[in-house]
Structures are given as structure tokens and as C-alpha cells.
Computed example of a mutant assay.
Amino acid sequence: MIEMKDLRKEFTVRVKTGRFRREKRLLAAVDGVSLAIAAGEMVGYIGPNGAGKSTTLKMLTGVLSPSGGEVSVCGLSPVPQRTRLALRIGVVFGQRSQLWWDLPLRESFGLLRHVYRVPAADHESRLRRCRDLLDLDAFMDTPVRQLSLGQRMRGELTAALLHGPEVLFLDEPTIGLDVVSKQAVRSFLGELGQAGDTTLVLTTHDLADIERLCRRLVVIDHGRVVHDGTIEDLHSRYGSRRRLVADLEAPLPPDFALPGATLLAAEADGHRVTFALESIAAGAAVAALVTAAPVRDLSVVEPEIEDVVARLYTDSR
């Protein structure tokens, strides 16, 4: 559905070289990205600020022309076939709107039906589904300028899907949303992805979105792909570890050892211990701990993906 081969985008910038002099230099925002995304995939595309995420999306949607390499979306070349491509993709940018500011949401949706030449029956069917899943009915007749950010984002998602796109590009779709709105958007996107009818490419700084929605994770830094695989692969590659935290009735014996784990902390005079689980399964670790000392409470803490990605960024520099 999406294919990039050695995709590049360079910008000319002026750099100060003296008190009154500047010289032109080329800055590679995207530096040789090669990816293939199959139909129906949900892919997280992440990276630090300035990594090249938004620039990549702009080339995929035909907004920017590549400086080099090849790119195709839905079998089309984005820039020369931009008009045809627009009928087959949907785009949601967290900081931009495709809705009419002074019109009620319902009328914006009606106008988009005519823009994309969608048959009335198809439009009504898709709109009904979005209304149900995103709970739009309470503000369908409210002008867009009066909607909260969460309400407007739900409207933006609906607007991007009313023409039945094959690919949906999402750039920071939950930025600035409250907890309730984030949950509504994530649930909707999860159901959309599970249906398998739409290919989703998601860029975000909220890694909780990636963990809950995307099986595949592509990490870009300085314009280059530094990881392409599952989140589990990322954890494994960069050494993230689950932690076993236990509150004990009595301290562990002085000679206690837990093979395949490392003791990270012993607090409250040894009544609270934390182990990093490396090559031992959580169940085996719990069994060994319970045998050695009476346990009040215990929990297995999953590694934070933020820590893993931060380590990846550091290693890639």
C-alpha cells in the first residue's frame, strides 16, 4: 500500500559564517528512508522533534516533492498524481483543521460529501458508524469554532473517513486532548484497525497511543530509520526489563539469590525489594520469592516504552 525506496528530502538553509556573511547549506530532513507498509497495517512512526516524521508524511500525501528516491501510495506517485491520491487517502493533523470554522459539524460533513463526490447512501452509512463510535450526536449542530478540542478532533477523524480512504495518515491526533477524549479516539482507531479495511500510519509523541494501537513501530532519528519491528523487539534489543516489586513480612535470607534477576533495591529494612527480571520468567521469580520469605504483596511492573525509546535515541547518535 505504501512503498518508499531511499526516500530523501533536503532543504536549503542559510548559515551564518561571519559578521555579515551567510552561506547556503543542504539539510537532509529525510535521509534515505526505505519502508514497505502492507494493506491493513497499523504502523507507529515516531521520533524526536526534527527527526523527519512530518516531512515524510508530507511527501507521502503529495504536499512536498522528494529530493531523491522513490515513493508510491496506493500505487500512485503522490505529487504528480495528487488529485487522484486525495480521493484514496485521509489525513488528520492535530494542529490543523479540514472543517469549516463557522458551520455546524453536520454541514461540514455534508460539504465534504460533495467535495469527494461520495454517494449519499455510502456517506450516511459511514457517518452513522462514526456518530455511534465517537459519540458525535450531542454536538452535530454546533459550529466548529464552539467545539472543545476533543470534540473537534472527533469531528476531524470523521471528516477524514467519510470518503472511505484506503490509507489514513494521523499526525499527533491526540495532542492536547483530555483523558476521556483520548480514550474515545484510541478506542475508535483500535476498532478501525481491527476491521483491516484501512491502513493507518500514526505519528505521535504520546507513546501510549503507539502501545495501544500499533503492532509495528518505526523509529526515525536524524532522517534515518533506526528501528523497524514490533514493540517487543524494541524492548528486547535495548535491554528493557520487567521489574518484580515485593512487600515482605520478613527480610530475605542473606544468602538468597534469584538466578536470572538482579536486585535493584532493598528498602524498609529489607521488607520491600525490587528485582529486574532478565532471563527468568515472572512466574518462576514469584515462586522462588514466595518460597524464601512470606509475601504481603507483589507486582510485576512492565517496562516503560518511553525509557526504551530514549535509550534508542541516545544509542543512534
Rank of each mutant, 00 (worst) to 15 (best):
72 S>Y: 00
230 T>Y: 05
317 R>F: 11
50 G>C: 04
116 Y>V: 11
13 V>N: 00
122 D>N: 11
3 E>I: 08
169 F>D: 03
243 R>F: 12
139 F>Y: 15
250 A>W: 08
56 T>D: 01
213 L>Q: 02
219 V>M: 08
210 I>N: 04
29 A>Q: 01
154 R>E: 11
291 T>R: 15
244 L>T: 07
235 H>F: 15
161 L>I: 04
234 L>R: 06
217 L>A: 05
192 L>G: 00
164 G>I: 10
308 V>L: 10
235 H>R: 15
26 L>N: 01
165 P>W: 03
42 M>W: 14
40 G>F: 00
65 S>E: 13
92 V>P: 02
123 H>Y: 15
140 M>H: 12
239 G>F: 05
18 G>Y: 02
291 T>S: 14
293 A>Q: 03
225 V>W: 01
192 L>C: 04
210 I>R: 03
164 G>K: 13
7 L>K: 00
46 I>Y: 02
208 A>W: 12
253 P>R: 06
210 I>E: 02
255 D>P: 06
157 L>E: 11
172 E>Q: 05
313 Y>K: 03
129 R>F: 10
196 G>C: 07
78 P>D: 03
82 R>Y: 06
89 I>S: 05
176 G>T: 05
14 R>M: 11
286 V>E: 02
124 E>I: 09
195 A>K: 12
61 T>C: 03
152 R>M: 14
116 Y>C: 10
249 E>S: 14
203 T>N: 11
281 A>T: 15
309 V>R: 10
12 T>V: 14
247 D>Y: 09
274 T>C: 14
256 F>V: 06
190 G>R: 13
82 R>S: 12
10 E>F: 06
170 L>R: 08
222 H>W: 00
152 R>D: 13
217 L>Q: 04
118 V>P: 08
205 H>T: 10
115 V>L: 14
91 V>P: 06
174 T>G: 10
60 L>H: 02
143 P>Q: 05
229 G>K: 06
10 E>A: 12
23 E>Q: 12
108 S>L: 06
92 V>N: 03
108 S>I: 07
298 L>A: 09
196 G>N: 07
227 H>W: 03
175 I>G: 04
181 S>G: 07
208 A>D: 15
45 Y>Q: 08
230 T>L: 07
205 H>L: 10
293 A>P: 11
269 D>F: 09
317 R>S: 13
149 L>K: 12
311 R>L: 09
311 R>I: 09
115 V>Q: 08
66 P>Q: 01
288 A>K: 09
19 R>L: 14
152 R>G: 14
98 Q>A: 07
204 T>C: 06
26 L>H: 05
245 V>W: 05
62 G>I: 05
43 V>K: 01
152 R>C: 13
159 A>N: 10
278 E>K: 10
242 R>H: 14
255 D>S: 13
316 S>H: 07
231 I>H: 04
